[in-house]
Design a protein around this nucleic acid. Sequence first.
DNA 1: TAGATTGTTAATCGATTAACAATC
DNA 2: TAGATTGTTAATCGATTAACAATC
Lengths: 214, 214
Amino acid sequence: MQYVSEKNLGRLSLYRRLLNRLQAEGTRSIYSHELARMAGGTAAQVRRDLMAVGSVGSPKRGYNVRELIDRIGEFLDAPEGEGVALVGAGNLGRAIMAYFSGRRPKLSIVAAFDTDPSKVNRVIHGCRSYPVEEMEEVVRRDGLRVGIITVPAKEAQGVADMLVAAGVRGILNFAPTPLRVGPDVHVEDIDMTMSLEKVAFYARKHALEREPAK
Amino acid sequence: MQYVSEKNLGRLSLYRRLLNRLQAEGTRSIYSHELARMAGGTAAQVRRDLMAVGSVGSPKRGYNVRELIDRIGEFLDAPEGEGVALVGAGNLGRAIMAYFSGRRPKLSIVAAFDTDPSKVNRVIHGCRSYPVEEMEEVVRRDGLRVGIITVPAKEAQGVADMLVAAGVRGILNFAPTPLRVGPDVHVEDIDMTMSLEKVAFYARKHALEREPAK
DNA sequence: TAGATTGTTAATCGATTAACAATC
DNA sequence: TAGATTGTTAATCGATTAACAATC
């Protein structure tokens, strides 16, 4: 299995989703250019990405959909499944719990934490919530290696430190602030404010180009 | 004003937020390496990014915080402000409305749309909600150029087409599917499933490296 | 002045794209 | 076979990093 970059990895995740839809529709095989068209990339890129997971296509029939799904799964998924801890059961946190609820059996949020007494010791979207004081204990007990942070920016670094101390090695960070973690922890940021500002910038640019009246 | 890449743009957005915090704390000036440390980048990169918005620093005092905030604002923001339309007032959509509510006066969600009769003609987190049938009319009337899509994957493309037809030129897409739009429309994807799968992959990798028992 | 930082150019790096022999 | 696609290498592209004269 060769080196796979972070961008490769993201695209593999996308391909799998597209392939799952195709399989549900009864499609058995697919060519690189077809998958590229669906994913919004080039055929060469798709071939290179698929090569990385050891897939085998044939010039005549392209790639077997089921086999591709299996290969990507072997590469991406933990065979035994992966439990996720979510910290911050506010509006965004609860929406994310709802979003991931039942979507992937091998990757599901199994515990939520909050400081607000009204939000803990309950079941939210099928997930048990605990006071933050119990975080280290629960994360250790359940062997959770993945965390999601949906607390305000000011609290995010402290939460990250607690998660890492409890054994978490990957964090999906929704707090609009950079996190400092060690080299053995991976952080993925989802910065909605940054994304919206970028979109607004380009929207304005496109609108101005359209009517070049000065 | 020189060329600014998409990554540059995102970092400028982050710098501004960090600078706003510094200003609130009373900091007047800052060196590139200090800002780099906060943002998680290199000093040279910060200098190059700031150069792009025409900032002027001095070897003695570094950059003036207030001036930087102004320059980045002139570059990123629409002077008259920008209204945003959100389509899909489900769990995620409402959480996003709450998230952006009052956060940026110049970039705020001013209208939400949904097909569910129980979710329309109301005020959610300070934002009026309408039935989708009124989307084109409202978007045109208010001159909205930015849209946020938080509907299920199957409906996303149709919603995108409607938004673009009504005049939207930038879309923040939370639906886990690629959108096809013309070259004069910018799409930014926030794919939470992809991000979580990437985090899980690296978390597993780090955990396995830690205990190389085979 | 001496020393640290800025603005800017050159060198490096990595990912994407193009190209093409091998294959069905 | 002829034709389209795959697997894989070489060329291109763009962003990051390093370097350094100019500046305070």
